[in-house]
Design a protein around this nucleic acid. Structure first.
Length: 278
DNA sequence: GCCCAGGGAATCG
DNA sequence: CGATTCCATGGG
C-alpha cells in the first residue's frame, strides 16, 4: 500500500484485493453514485469522496494521506489481508469461483445507526429504490455542509414522526424506522454494547427492533459492526446455496470470515443474472 | 394487471 | 414449530 499526494488529492497504489467500485456495487452500501465507468462518488465518513480509477490504483480527490489514514483506511478495511482470507476458502469451489469476480470487494465499516436504518429500508425492496429512499431521508432530516447531507440522528427521526417521514415514501417500513429510533434514543437498544457483546447477543439485541429479522440483523452486524462471521441469507444467497450446496449447509462451518464469503457469493450470483438498472 | 424487489410481522393450523 | 398473508411503492 503506497500513498502519493497529487493535486490536493491522494493516489493509492500497490493495494491488492481492493476495488472500491465493485465494493460499492456489491450491495453493502447505498450512499454512492456512479458518475462514469472510471469515477464514483461515495458519501461516507461525514463527507463526499470522489474516486477515480488510475493507472495502477485509485485516485481520491480533495483528501490527503493523513485524513485518509484516519477515516477511509479503516472504512475500506484496508489493513486486513483479504488475499489470505480468500486462500482460506480454497477448499470451497463455489466461494473460490465467486472470489474471482468479487476479489476486489472490501467490507465497508459503516456507521451502525445508518446501517440499521438502511437495511430496515432494504426489506422487500430493490437497490435503486433503497438508494432513493435513503437519499431523500438525508435531504429531509440530515444536516447539510458543502453538498454533503449527514445521515439523520435517531432524535431527528423520532422528532419527525410518521407524518414527517411520509415524503421519503418508505411505505410500511417507516414505522419500523421510528421503532428503531425510539429504542435507540431510550437506550433500550444500546449500540455501544452491540459493538462489543459478541455475535449471538448482538443478533438477539438487534432483533428486538421491529422490522429487523434474521437477514437484516446479519447485514447490520456485518456492515455496521464488523462481525465478519455474520452471514445474511437473502433471496440471492438462497439461490446460490441451492446451486452449490446441499440441505446440510451451515454458514457457521465457514468460520469467522463467513460474511466475506457471503459477499463474494452474493455479488457473483447477482452479476450473473444482471438485475437492477445498469 | 402481474410480478418482483438484499424480509418481517401477524396470524393461523 | 411451518406455512400463508399482508405490508407500500416503483419498475419491468
Amino acid at each position: 500500500m503506497k500513498f502519493t499526494n497529487i493535486d490536493g488529492g491522494l493516489l493509492l497504489t500497490e493495494c491488492k484485493n481492493f476495488d472500491p467500485f465493485v465494493s460499492c456495487e456489491c450491495g453493502q452500501c447505498f450512499r454512492f453514485e456512479k458518475i462514469s465507468d472510471s469515477e464514483y462518488e461515495l458519501f461516507a465518513c461525514g463527507r463526499r469522496l470522489s474516486i477515480r480509477s488510475a493507472e495502477n490504483g485509485w485516485y481520491f480527490s480533495d483528501i490527503d494521506e493523513r485524513e485518509f489514514r484516519a477515516s477511509f483506511l479503516p472504512y475500506f478495511d484496508l489493513d486486513r489481508d483479504y488475499g489470505e482470507i480468500i486462500d482460506s476458502f480454497s477448499g470451497d469451489a463455489a466461494i473460490s469461483k465467486a472470489a474471482v469476480s468479487g476479489g476486489g470487494i472490501r467490507i465497508f465499516r459503516q456507521d451502525p445507526w445508518e446501517t440499521i436504518v438502511s437495511f430496515i429500508i432494504s426489506a422487500n425492496n430493490n437497490i435503486p429504490r433503497i438508494k432513493k429512499i435513503i437519499n431523500s431521508l438525508c435531504r429531509l432530516l440530515g444536516e447539510e455542509s458543502n453538498g454533503f447531507y449527514s445521515f439523520p440522528t435517531p432524535e431527528a427521526i423520532l422528532n419527525a414522526g410518521l407524518d414527517g417521514l411520509a415524503p421519503i415514501k418508505a411505505g410500511f417500513r417507516t414505522k419500523y424506522i421510528i421503532d428503531a429510533a425510539s429504542r435507540v434514543v431510550s437506550g433500550e437498544v444500546d449500540l455501544d454494547r452491540i459493538a462489543v457483546c459478541g455475535y449471538d447477543a448482538a443478533l438477539a439485541e438487534l432483533k428486538r427492533i421491529k422490522g429487523i429479522g434474521d437477514k437484516v440483523a446479519n447485514c447490520v452486524l456485518l456492515f455496521g459492526f464488523g462481525y465478519y462471521e455474520a452471514f445474511p441469507v437473502d433471496v440471492w444467497v438462497k439461490r446460490v446455496i441451492g446451486k452449490y450446496y446441499d440441505d446440510s449447509f451451515d454458514p457457521r462451518s465457514l468460520g469467522k470470515y463467513a460474511g466475506i464469503a457471503q459477499q463474494y457469493l452474493f455479488y457473483y450470483e447477482r452479476s450473473i443474472l444482471g438485475s437492477d438498472g445498469e
